[in-house]
């Protein structure tokens, strides 16, 4: 199977230094199980994705692109020519616009099917088919069989990335591709004003629509669990059990008692 792994110029979530997004490192690991994989990056500078060479890729194709340019047309052109069976990508970029649209736009351009949140992938039982496992919320999963080509986005629960190996990174190659970016209609963009991010308190989870105004006020100001922390000293075991069950139901991790609707 021919596999391409999309690599983006991510940023480390804490330090903001250039770093390969973890999901893409996990994508490389998934790719290794499918067949021969090459990395693909579109952007001004390939050094930022060179880390991928130490994570199991031996070659990265680099399409030079002006900073801030839409990578989709260039990536689509390269992928159309290379015609990989599987394109692997992170769920979302990290450090750019972070909209997570690239995989979908590419799939549309390539006529491929998008399967999101993949944690495992293997060739299907017949040629031209792939079998993947998708992570669903709360530990559930879905096994999907699909016809190639596919674009897979990787879920954080996929196997840990391979550890970075400096020696392998040193040996890997980055090949520069010159792509005459096809004059595809530029995607309609949204005019945005940017400023630096200011964190805001989140709503309290578990404060349902019908919660009292006081509850919602508390939720908005972040007065959460500690503000209503509840300590029971030496309760009757039964009383304790009831309090625990009620609490678990309030936060929604335990199903309501049978018959309670």
């Amino acid at each position: 199977m021919k596999v391409a792994v999309l690599l983006s110029a991510g940023r480390h979530p804490v330090s903001g230094r250039g770093a390969l997004p973890r999901l893409e490192a996990q994508a490389i690991r998934l790719a290794a199980a499918l067949g021969s994989a090459r990395g693909l990056h579109a952007g001004p500078d390939a050094d930022v994705v060179a880390e991928a060479l130490g994570r199991g890729l031996s070659q990265i194709d680099h399409v030079a692109l002006a900073a801030g340019a839409d990578p989709v047309p260039a990536l689509a052109a390269v992928l159309r020519a290379a015609a990989p069976d599987v394109v692997l990508a992170g769920r979302r970029g990290q450090g750019g616009d972070d909209t997570g649209l690239v995989p979908y736009a590419l799939a549309r351009a390539l006529g491929a099917t998008v399967i999101p949140d993949v944690v495992a992938a293997r060739p299907g039982s017949e040629p031209g088919v792939i079998e993947v496992e998708q992570a669903l919320p709360k530990g559930a999963a879905r096994r999907v069989v699909a016809r190639l080509p596919v674009v897979l986005t990787v879920h954080p629960a996929a196997p840990e990335p391979s550890a970075f190996a400096f020696g392998q990174a040193r040996r890997g190659r980055i090949e520069r591709l010159d792509v005459a970016a096809p004059a595809e209609p530029a995607a309609a963009a949204i005019a945005v004003a940017e400023k630096s991010y200011r964190p805001r308190p989140k709503m309290m989870r578990g404060a349902p629509a019908g919660g009292s105004a006081a509850d919602r006020l508390k939720a908005a100001t972040g007065g959460g669990e500690a503000a209503q922390a509840n300590v029971m000293v030496s309760p009757e075991p039964r009383e304790a059990a009831r309090a625990i069950l009620a609490y678990l139901r309030q936060i929604g991790v335990l199903a309501p008692p049978p018959g309670a609707g």
Binding site: G54, R55, S162, A163, F164, A165, F166, G167, Q168
Partner: peptide, 8 residues
């Protein structure tokens, strides 16, 4: 192990 194989 670490630098060449990433075997940590």
């Amino acid at each position: 192990q670490t630098l060449e194989l990433g075997a940590v």
